[in-house]
């Protein structure tokens, strides 16, 4: 907690449950996501990112906080808006941008694309592009953890729009009855694609207001405050690891860009974006770090280091070859090939 003295603001770190090392990691992860996503956007404009792409600009705190709170062995299940959550587990910017640019250096060598980022070695068990599909899948991963007694937690990220599809409700009930170690994280950015979520949802808080239906606690957290999300994540993980079952967390946030590359987001009321940008998670967090006595120069050097890394990744991707023809027919089946007949 910060106390004002006559001279300056000084930090009383003894009272802080998060600590400087974790805070700097939270800051750095948010910066990596911000700069990588901004670069992805710039690369669209140069027609170097192909297909579609869904950015998390403005929503970085949630992925960064969960990624920091997770431990090795915990498993992430992401959506098509999953670059942020993938990067938050330590997957390299180059392999993510490479996949967006559909090059051979991409995370899946161009076979998946932006909407399906997966890195099993980092515990990123996939990004799912069919709304709601991965909530039951995360339940299954949690079932394995429970069955084998690993203590690992499955973390499932999704948007507000997902709360209105059947799989959301099936998965919550499933997780609750079997007390599965799964944490459902709703990123409520106020819009399901192009439509305001409140216009199409019976309750004010699309996730939290449904929690009671499954015997779960109602949790709403400021998704633009990495510390708040981090603390909430830790509590949910402790509950899951103790065998006390799932949590459903609604994080309030806002995406600065449109739904996808095709969307200029003209449906948003005037001034809304500007109001949310006042509460930009990275801006909020820089102020937070300063209030804890961390020098501006420390943040600036992180910003610069991340910028150099994103630049280097971009150049590596631009130089990378396109995927070769021979991978077209690999990994359809577990024998490595695609044979369906003899």
């Amino acid at each position: 907690m910060a106390k004002k003295t006559a001279e300056a603001t000084v930090l009383d770190r003894s009272n802080d449950d998060i600590g400087e090392a974790v805070r700097l990691e939270l800051y750095r992860k948010q910066q990596v996501i911000r700069q990588a996503e901004q670069r992805a956007y710039d690369l669209f404009l140069q027609n170097l990112v192909k297909g579609t792409s869904h950015l998390s600009l403005g929503q970085e705190a949630i992925a960064a906080a969960f990624g920091t709170a997770m431990r090795p062995g915990d498993l992430s299940f992401c959506t098509y808006r999953g670059h942020a959550h993938t990067l938050a587990r330590g997957v390299s910017v180059e392999s993510v941008l490479g996949e967006l640019m559909q090059r051979d250096n991409g995370l899946m060598r161009g076979k998946g694309g932006s909407m399906h980022l997966t890195s099993v070695e980092h515990g990123v068990m996939g990004s799912y592009a069919i709304i709601g599909a991965h909530l039951p899948i995360a339940c299954g991963a949690a079932l394995t953890a429970q069955y084998k007694g690993t203590g690992d937690v499955a973390v499932c990220f999704f948007g507000d729009g997902t709360t209105n599809i059947g799989a959301f409700h099936e998965a919550l009930n499933f997780a609750a009855i079997w007390k599965l170690p799964v944490v459902f994280v709703c990123e409520n950015n106020l819009y399901m694609e192009y439509t305001a979520i409140h216009e199409v949802t019976a309750v004010k808080h699309p996730a939290a207001d449904r929690a009671a239906a499954y015997g779960l606690e109602r949790i709403v957290v400021d998704g633009n405050d990495a510390d708040a999300v981090y603390r909430t994540a830790q509590a949910a993980f402790a509950k899951a690891r103790a065998g006390d079952g799932p949590s459903l967390i609604e994080c309030l946030t806002y995406r600065h860009s449109g739904h996808s590359r095709a969307d200029p987001a003209k449906y948003r009321p005037e001034g809304e974006l500007e109001r949310w940008k006042e509460r930009d998670p990275i801006k909020v967090y820089r102020e937070r770090l300063k209030s804890f006595g961390i020098a501006e120069s420390v943040m600036t050097s992180i910003d610069q280091e991340v910028a150099r890394m994103v630049d280097a990744a971009t150049e590596a991707c631009k130089a990378a070859p396109m995927p070769p023809e021979d991978i077209l027919f690999t990994d359809v089946y577990a024998d490595g090939g695609w044979a369906w007949r003899n």
């Binding site: 498993l75 299940f77 068990m125 996939g126 599909a133 991965h134 909530l135 039951p136 899948i137 995360a138 339940c139 299954g140 991963a141 949690a142 079932l143 394995t144 953890a145 069955y147 084998k148 499955a154 799989a167 099936e170 998965a171 499933f174």
Partner: peptide, 11 residues
């Protein structure tokens, strides 16, 4: 879905 998640993770 749960069958798939379990299969992906070793069951």
């Amino acid at each position: 879905g749960a069958a798939m998640g379990a299969a992906m993770t070793g069951l």
